Computed example of a mutant assay.
Amino acid sequence: MIPLQRVAVSAHAQMLLTRWTKRVEAAGGTAEAARAQWSEGTAPKKHVRAALELMAHGAVRCMYCDDSRATDIDHFEPLARAPLRAFVWANHLLACSHCNSNCKHRQYPVGADGVCLLVDPTAEDPAAHLVLLLKAGMYDPLSPKGEETIKVFGLNRPDLVKGRLDAFALARSNLRDWHSLHQEGDPEADVVAQALLDSPFIDVVHAMTRLKPGVAEFVVGPRTVPSLDAWRAMHALQP
Rank of each mutant, 00 (worst) to 15 (best):
V60N: 01
A50W: 07
M138H: 11
A230F: 02
L118V: 05
N174L: 06
Q107P: 10
A123L: 14
D166V: 12
A95M: 08
S199N: 09
A171N: 02
L132H: 06
D203T: 02
E124H: 13
D166F: 14
V9W: 08
A27R: 13
A70S: 15
H179Y: 04
S97M: 10
K45T: 04
A86R: 03
A33Q: 02
L142C: 04
Y64N: 04
C96S: 08
H47N: 14
A167E: 00
L17N: 03
A34H: 03
P213K: 08
P144M: 00
L94W: 01
M63G: 12
S39E: 15
K22M: 07
E148Y: 11
R164I: 09
G221K: 00
F76L: 04
A86F: 01
D66N: 15
A233P: 13
P78A: 07
Q183I: 09
E124F: 12
V219K: 00
V110W: 11
L16K: 13
H98W: 15
R6V: 07
E217D: 00
H235D: 09
L133R: 15
G214R: 05
Q107L: 11
V205T: 14
D74G: 01
K145N: 11
A33Y: 06
P109M: 10
G214A: 02
K135H: 12
T18F: 05
A50F: 07
V115W: 02
A31I: 02
F218M: 05
E32Q: 04
K151Y: 11
R81G: 14
P83S: 01
F201Q: 09
A56F: 05
D177N: 08
V60A: 01
E77R: 10
M15H: 12
E32M: 11
D190F: 09
D229E: 09
V131D: 08
F168C: 02
C96F: 07
G111K: 09
D177F: 05
S180A: 13
V7T: 07
T122D: 04
V115G: 00
P200E: 15
L142W: 00
L17R: 05
A189L: 12
C116S: 05
P239R: 10
C96I: 12
L133F: 14
S143P: 03
F168W: 07
R81S: 11
L16D: 03
K104H: 03
A8Y: 02
I150G: 10
V115Y: 04
E188W: 10
D140S: 08
V161I: 06
L94D: 08
K45H: 10
C99V: 05
E188K: 11
L181D: 06
Q238A: 06
D229Q: 12
D140N: 11
L118M: 08
A233V: 14
L54E: 13
L211V: 01
Q5C: 11
A236Y: 04
T42N: 10
H12R: 11
A36F: 15
